[in-house]
Amino acid sequence: MSTTRLDETARGVFPISATPFTPDGALDLDSLDRLVDFYLARRVHGLTLLGIMGEAPKLTPAESRAVVRRAVARIGGRVPIVVGVSNVDLTALAALANDSMAAGAAAVMVAPPPGLVGDDALLAYIGSVVTAIDRGTPIVYQDYPQSTGVTLTVEAFHRMVDAFPQLVMLKHEDAPGLTKLSRIRAEAAHAGRRRVSVLVGNNAIYYPQELARGADGAMTGFSYPEMLVEVYERFAAGDADGAEDVFDVYLPLLRYEAQPGIGLAVRKELLRRRGALASSAVRTPGLALSAEDRRELDRLVARLERRLKA
């Protein structure tokens, strides 16, 4: 398999892949092929499996391994794959990380377990992860305190970058996080520190501002990944206004998808409507769309399509 490993130069859009299920809740690996094809056809720069949006905690270890292997096989080395391996059980984390890298993943993504307090505890935890997984495995640190309850201070992040050369990317989702992003970039540049890649999550709701503040792209599951790619490309080409114009067209739908709790069901329904999934089934526990939700979605999509044609 492709042995390409992620490094600090990673740029662009690495969507968080949904995990397809059949209506009865079984893993649907044939749909995973369709989904991979869907993302690749939209010229994404990488793909992220088993993120929070990928319903990773709802999968058995065997299912997680199967998702990684199947996606690796389908992608065939065309883009790098990041695999979310976060787990309060360090042994389970290491097992999935090592298996994923052996299968051909490019990096693993780790969010800290809930309950860590203070920079030292966080640094020690990342140290234990680095020790537990195969040497040299590139790591993406997922900074998502809304979910983990663990705060990453800018100082702790700098220490982490210095201490762990394996840390090549930050998935930035803290909120409020814009000043944090600016500080990370400015202070690292001032100190001559290694510049790691920063991709933004949080449903890309602040994407244009984050790109302007030094982010390198996005790692989120918006059901129209072509928008994320186009905004990235326009911004990278120096057309910040054009990038923001494109973003604005999709903003109502993006905002609707960013609803806490039910956003995943919205996203899977849109992916189904776009032909990328056979079923929009979300595994329990998960929220389902009401008839009223669907009508709103119909209207939002119709408005989007009208604006895209204009």
Binding site: A26, L27, L29, T60, A62, E63, R65, A66, R69
Partner: peptide, 8 residues
């Protein structure tokens, strides 16, 4: 065995 458990 893994694969069968998952893919049925």
């Amino acid at each position: 065995g893994d694969d069968i458990a998952v893919s049925r």
